[in-house]
Design a protein around this nucleic acid. Structure first.
Lengths: 351, 351
DNA sequence: CTGTTAGCGCTTTCAA
DNA sequence: TTGAAAGCGCTAACAG
């Protein structure tokens, strides 16, 4: 259809018999305008249903007061809380937030970055998992001095801040907790082989085993299959379910397992119940995140709580600091403490 | 800090000794450019790390190839699946998706609309709950012919399409199912008083009772407290928990309950278990949505499945149709069937 | 195949 | 208190 032609400043100016500049002043509420003129203009604005063109405005002003947030997926409560916290912090400062989803694909990460840069956002918060293509592009964008903050992992670029939970220590403490309870055969659910060096929670797990001289049994570490392609949104739970099934089929099955996150733990719990086994007596389970549902499963889930909202707030602050900076900003990073929440899903190992 | 001055078409043109227009052609890959010139330009582009300015481009072209999606919250798996489906459909057509969250606040709805309109998105998909302020603003935006599609409810404007699940029939069938099982005292969880006329699922519930001559007991209908202000993201589960507690404290407690959605049902289940009662024998529960977790609770949740992805796809198609239309578009609406999924949380009433 | 011109809608700057 | 001019960076339309 023939879209109604956009009403412009000039239209309003013509209609109310003043200059475009005067209309601009009225619309933006700055500069001096006589009450009389103001009213005349405002009348025309209402009458013609005028909306200023943000594109033109931003083009001229060289800023958009908009920030982008790139998320790997939406299915994890982690993303949700983070996004809310970021949004709240930013909107309190008059910034808009546009969220992009990349579905954990490097290609889509790039598409999201492009889209945001194309729209000249004032800064980007990145909370996707690290991947080569995405990192490379992000690096280039950071080179152009666009403010960037990364959440949940680090990013080695002098112009990029990052904030993350202490996943390593969290993983360590979760595992340590199980060891303290007397468990020796402890599974890890949710790690693909290629995560070995990037997944801090897995590293914490390995470290705890090492500290107690428990040999690592590769078969106890299970994760998504090779074909990561078939792993869409909600798969984390599916991974937990399948991972636990694999652990249960082992000749010498573990007496406890640490799941990469709560969703994975929920899947694992389902598999255990389905096998007619009991939690925590046959198998103890620890999750990670302390999602809202964690306290409501039966039994309630022992898990590691990470400060999701705080990460979002800090990320927003870091970004605003960069956006507003008038001189060079020194890189900043924050690693936040996690907290082990012991509930019913863990208990001392049977002897 | 002094942000690096943006590299422009003219800079590249100057550097490579051609006109800006030629650079534009190379960058956008349209029009004829000799191989030789192309290479020269491309070299300069790489060398100077040029990125075209999307604002200027969109201002000139009068389109952004970007669509906005406004969501009430992110905590409901419904939003998640919808967003993913929308994103997939749009990105397949070369459109970007920017998601805005309104936290179920009319004020934030408006802020999201403004932000999107300000960025001259080509269209908006709205999936927030209906509210007066938001509707009013949306109406004005629709008046200006910006393509708009509403999801999950209707919206009475000749220029706005909508797609929704058949919540009324879904609610009816869920309740009917419980009645068929012999239940007569059936609670409804998750309806505030003011939802009475807007919540189709509640209307379906009431209709089913009416059909079977079961008198409505107001005390069996429970929802969020008056102060909706204290109800942030994840509260739906909390509402279910509290709602069920209230039902359990009734002198003559119900033998079954229909929860407004799965999250609410999960909360209700937690309350029942906490009271030492059994599901489904003491109280049967039906949810709505068939979220991924529904099949993994103990017992698994009987629920009404609504086609979330399909709604997203259709919404995207409807919007693209409007965006691409060259002449007036007739209003379209689609109501999609739901499906009752019977699992372990419902069983015949004890006599 | 390449260049010129004009202008998208706004705001900055300077002048009145 | 108001206005005129210039230009943000890009591309459509036309000319060469």
């Amino acid at each position: 259809m023939i879209r109604k032609k956009q009403v412009t400043l000039n239209d309003i100016a013509a209609r109310s018999g003043v200059a475009a500049m005067t209309v601009s002043r009225v619309v933006n509420g700055n500069g001096y305008v006589s009450e009389e003129t103001r009213e005349k203009v405002l009348a025309a604005v209402t009458e013609m249903n005028y909306r200023r063109n943000g594109l033109a405005r931003s083009l001229k002003r060289q800023k958009t007061e908009t920030v982008g947030l790139v998320l790997g997926d939406l299915s994890n409560p982690y993303s949700t809380e983070l996004a809310n916290a970021v949004r709240e912090s930013l909107s309190a400062q008059g910034f808009n937030l546009f969220i992009c989803i990349s579905e954990h694909s490097g290609k889509e990460d790039i598409a999201a970055f492009e889209a945001l840069v194309d729209h000249n956002v004032d800064g980007i918060i990145v909370a996707t998992r690290s991947n080569r293509d995405g990192n490379e592009r992000l690096d280039r964008i950071a080179d152009s001095d666009l403010p960037i903050v990364v959440v949940g992992r680090d990013f080695p670029h002098k112009g990029v801040d990052y904030v993350s939970a202490d996943n390593f220590t969290g993983g360590f403490e979760a595992t340590q907790h199980l060891i303290d309870l007397g468990h020796r055969r402890i599974g890890f659910i949710g790690a693909a082989f290629e995560d070995r060096h990037s997944l801090k929670r897995l590293q914490g797990y390995l470290k705890a085993l090492e500290k107690h001289d428990i040999a690592v049994d590769e078969r106890l570490i299970t994760g998504r299959s090779e074909s990561a392609a078939d792993v869409p949104g909600y798969s984390t739970e599916k991974i937990g379910y399948e991972g636990m099934k694999r652990l249960l089929s082992l000749p010498n099955r573990p007496t406890a397992a640490f799941a990469r996150n709560d969703l994975t733990a929920f899947g694992a719990i389902a598999a255990i119940k389905e096998a007619g086994l009991s939690i925590p007596n046959d198998i103890a389970i620890v999750g990670f995140d302390d999602t809202p549902l964690a306290s409501h499963t039966t039994p309630a889930l022992t898990t590691v709580r990470q400060p999701m909202r705080l990460q979002g707030q800090i990320a927003a602050e870091m970004l605003l600091r960069r956006i507003r900076a008038v001189e060079d900003v020194r890189r900043e990073d924050r690693i936040l403490d996690c907290e082990l929440i012991v509930r019913g899903s863990t208990v001392a190992a049977k002897l």
